[in-house]
């Protein structure tokens, strides 16, 4: 019996399970009960209009949103009451929308800043092989990089930590198409290396090229889920959701 449990439990429990997640900025109630699941090895997107609550959802998971309520279960552990540093140590890594490159740190220092949270992260060499542009700029000031390079640095530095679960907030925002493609290839490679990714995106064509499933966020709730293979069939519905 215990063997049967052991066989069914891990297969059914998602890697991340968000239930009834509510969140506030001071008195302003922004998340009104977000529900979604992410399975190990998946790339899942959060799509939605400006101000829908995608960034806030990531902040609430990461713990950097001070006032939050509900349940965030990750890898069998409840995270909702933990401080951000404990959530990071549990194995979730965060790449913020504003990228968060430190101007008083060199590229190298930015890259090496996040501490290792578990074994099995990419080595410095692996990361630099993945982002060759950064290799030539290691001693530059972090914020002297171009927007695309800063985005790559923001992704690169969280790959070293050993966290296998990545929260990426609009990594393609404001970048040239050729760089968007490069980031797309990188995310596919990360997926093939076993990373699990929650990706916030406005650009659903980009999202469609790498994601397994799409959650639609509207006014602080998840209102729909569309598997990637059904995206074409639901394109009209999606346009309506996103108002494009």
């Amino acid at each position: 019996m215990s063997e049967a449990m052991a066989m069914t439990e891990p297969a059914t429990a998602p890697f991340l399970s968000v239930r009834d997640l509510e969140g506030w900025y001071d008195e302003s109630h922004v998340l009104h009960g977000v529900d979604f699941d992410v399975n190990a090895g998946e790339v899942v997107t959060l799509l939605g209009r400006n101000g829908a609550g995608k960034t806030t959802t990531l902040r609430a998971i990461m713990g950097t949103l001070a006032k939050r309520r509900g349940s965030v279960r990750f890898n069998g552990r409840e995270l909702i009451d933990l401080p951000p540093r404990a959530i990071a140590r549990a194995g979730i890594a965060f790449c913020p929308e504003e990228r968060g490159i430190f101007s008083s740190l060199s590229v190298e220092e930015n890259l090496m800043l996040p501490p290792t949270v578990s074994q099995g992260g990419l080595s410095r060499e692996d990361v630099l092989a993945m982002f060759p542009n950064l290799k030539e700029r290691l001693s530059s000031q972090g914020t002297k990089l171009s927007g695309g390079e800063q985005q790559m640095l923001a992704i690169a530095r969280i790959l070293r930590t050993g966290a296998k679960f990545l929260l990426l907030d609009e990594p393609t925002e404001g970048l040239a198409p050729v760089i968007v493609q490069q980031i797309g290839r990188t995310l596919s490679e990360l997926k093939s290396r076993g990373f699990t990714i929650v990706l916030v995106e406005q650009n659903f064509r980009f999202a469609a090229s790498i994601a397994d499933r799409h959650y639609v966020v509207e006014q602080g709730r998840v209102i729909d889920m569309i598997p990637n293979e059904e995206l074409e069939a639901n394109i009209g519905k999606l346009h309506a959701y996103l108002g494009v």
Partner: peptide, 8 residues
């Protein structure tokens, strides 16, 4: 905030 979110 971000440094804390890295686990420091």
């Amino acid at each position: 905030t971000l440094v804390g979110a890295f686990g420091i």
